[in-house]
């Protein structure tokens, strides 16, 4: 499903965020991505979503080499991916409902079907009662749930979560992990990044450990 071959990412300014990484993630896998701050976790996830392009090497997602993809084709790759951003990227000029509606508007969903799906996604993350609120009125954990709802509402094959439990307490984090587990159970390929490994250990899944842009064991 996802394959990195000798991927190096150098940001302008000469910094190498990733160095010659190679790995493979199978369809339906749930993988954790660990590493200290600045290790390159976000960069790796951005490469999968085509938000950044590798400086060298190839990134293949669902059989498509993103390195040689035309600019105009990138949006269509992203539609098969659900993204949970480290900095949330919630829009505060609209309601919770409208935030979750955005991916469906982009794809061009029939309004009635879209409404149904948004409700289902909000229900799944426990925000159905707050759909009319402005996201400002949500707690940090609820905002994280809103991000999850927006990432899964179009039922992507791949879900990339960048530190989804970043600022949450342990109990709340476990709740969120349960959510991801349920998506995993219906066959979604999931990568979850975190700098705190203690949460991952309980799940007995593969953990990719990054340090200074390289894997460590």
């Amino acid at each position: 499903m996802i394959q990195f071959n000798q991927v190096t990412k150098r940001y302008p300014g000469g910094l190498e965020a990733l160095r010659s990484l190679s790995f493979q993630i199978e369809s339906g896998e749930l993988v954790f991505l660990a590493g200290h701050s600045g290790a390159g976790k976000s960069t790796l996830l951005k490469l999968i979503a085509g938000i950044e392009r590798p400086t060298s090497g190839s990134v293949v997602v669902s059989g498509q080499n993103l390195a040689s993809l035309k600019r105009a084709s990138v949006p269509f790759v992203r539609r098969h991916i659900g993204l949970i951003f480290q900095d949330h990227k919630i829009l505060f000029d609209r309601s919770v409902f409208e935030n979750v509606m955005l991916p469906l508007d982009i794809v061009g969903f029939d309004r009635r079907e879209a409404t149904r799906r948004v409700r289902a996604a909000l229900d799944k993350v426990g925000l159905l009662g707050k759909e009319k609120l402005n996201p400002v009125a949500l707690s940090g954990g609820e905002q994280q749930r809103l991000c999850i709802a927006r990432a899964v509402v179009h039922r992507p094959a791949i879900l990339l979560a960048d530190e989804p439990t970043g600022n949450l307490d342990r109990a709340y984090s476990l709740d969120i992990m349960e959510l991801f587990k349920s998506f995993h159970q219906v066959g979604v390929t999931i990568i979850i990044s975190a700098h705190d490994e203690s949460l991952m250990a309980d799940y007995g899944r593969r953990i990719l450990r990054l340090s200074k842009g390289q894997f460590t064991q």
């Binding site: 979503a49 938000i51 105009a72 949006p75 269509f76 790759v77 992203r78 539609r79 991916i81 993204l83 951003f85 990227k89 829009l91 000029d93 955005l102 991916p103 982009i106 794809v107 927006r150």
Partner: peptide, 16 residues
């Protein structure tokens, strides 16, 4: 710009 940025990140085409 926030809306445009997010839209692009989650798969909006330039046309959209």
């Amino acid at each position: 710009r926030d809306e445009i940025e997010v839209s692009k990140l989650i798969g909006a085409t330039d046309h959209f």
